[in-house]
């Protein structure tokens, strides 16, 4: 074949190809054209098979022309691909579009109950003063729940605790977390800093502020030279931790057989219900209780406090009725998360 004829065929291929490319609409059609024109078995390769018939002198010339043609077709393909791609992307986006303004479905978020959460909040505050959590048993005996706490049998102070007894003589449901003081002192050497949270029980009619099952957190610090002033310092911090930095406290004498002197603590933090609210009882651990715990009251002294978790939770969350805690209405529980 002559050089001229082949060159003409190549130029024709170029012209026709560019026309076909120009007419192609989709990326897929352009991919097909690409392989039918430039591929291993494509039209250009086909034409160049004739190159063997050319003289050695003509071959480089036709090679150069073929490269030009390939470059021109490539360029056309690439141009066209860009245009078609953009159109297709637009079409895809249009086709896939939805109304994004609909509110999303709600997550199923659970919730933590205010009683364990209040206990956890107290534990976090007290942990910063070196208090760790210890938990005791709820089924107790008369000796630990009362007698070792300086509440003898037949003493009128027993009237402070209406007790639920088990059928087994001497067994009862703990009326407070205070027996944990004895168990802790007997198990751990001073210095002691623990809080003892847990469920307590009393023989008490149920109303908006009383229940026969409730929770307390007991605190106990035993060391050398601990004072009533220390008690005030720590409980001031606890009150502020629970009710906010501007909380005011009022300490006044109270009565518990297992502390001497005994303290009642009131708080006030302004807001809607201004006034003093009693949140806990406390005092210096009674020497008889220290002695019963195996600690020498001449070398060590300490303070203890006990607070009602339900009461704190009611004040913090503004829950008006204590019965709500055991009701476990999901509408309330989820509202508190």
């Amino acid at each position: 074949m002559e050089l001229a004829a082949l060159e003409k065929q190549l130029r024709t291929l170029q012209t026709e190809s560019i026309a076909k490319i120009g007419a192609a609409e989709t990326s897929a059609a352009l991919d097909d054209l690409g392989s039918s024109l430039l591929g291993k078995r494509g039209a250009l390769t086909d034409l160049l098979r004739g190159i063997g018939a050319l003289s050695a002198e003509d071959r480089p010339k036709i090679g150069a022309i073929a490269n030009e043609v390939r470059a021109a077709i490539d360029a056309a393909l690439s141009n066209r691909r860009g245009a078609a791609g953009a159109a297709e992307l637009t079409a895809l986006i249009t086709a896939e579009s939805a109304d994004p303004t609909a509110p999303g479905p709600l997550p199923q978020v659970g919730s933590l109950h205010p009683i364990p959460e209040t206990i956890a909040a107290i534990a976090r505050i007290m942990a910063s003063f070196g208090f760790t959590v210890a938990e005791g048993q709820e089924v107790e005996d008369d000796v630990t729940n009362f007698q070792l706490l300086n509440i003898p049998e037949d003493h009128p102070s027993r009237d402070l605790w209406d007790t639920l007894y088990l059928r087994e003589p001497g067994r009862l449901l703990r009326t407070h977390t205070s027996p944990g003081q004895i168990r802790t002192m007997r198990a751990v050497q001073p210095p002691i800093r623990v809080i003892l949270p847990g469920r307590c029980f009393r023989y008490e009619a149920v109303d908006a502020s009383h229940g026969f099952e409730f929770h307390q957190v007991e605190g106990l610090l035993v060391d050398r030279g601990t004072t009533l002033a220390d008690l005030k310092g720590i409980l001031d911090e606890l009150a502020r931790g629970l009710f906010g930095p501007s909380t005011r406290t009022r300490f006044r004498p109270g009565y518990y057989p297992f502390t001497e002197p005994s303290v009642a603590v009131d708080v006030s933090w302004g807001g809607a219900k201004d006034g003093w609210m009693t949140i806990l009882g406390a005092g210096m651990v009674h020497p008889i209780v220290l002695e019963n715990g195996g600690i020498d009251p001449e070398t060590h002294q300490g303070f203890a406090f006990g607070l009602g978790v339900e009461r704190i939770a009611m004040l913090r969350h503004e829950i008006p009725d204590l019965r709500a805690f055991l009701e476990n209405d999901l509408r309330m529980l989820r509202g508190l998360r």
Binding site: G130, P191, D223, G225, K232, R250
Partner: peptide
């Protein structure tokens, strides 16, 4: 009790538990 100045007990801390 109101005349007692609060203090924070800064003596021995118990070991880690």
């Amino acid at each position: 009790y109101d005349r007692i100045t609060p203090t924070l007990p800064g003596r021995d801390l118990p070991g880690y538990l």
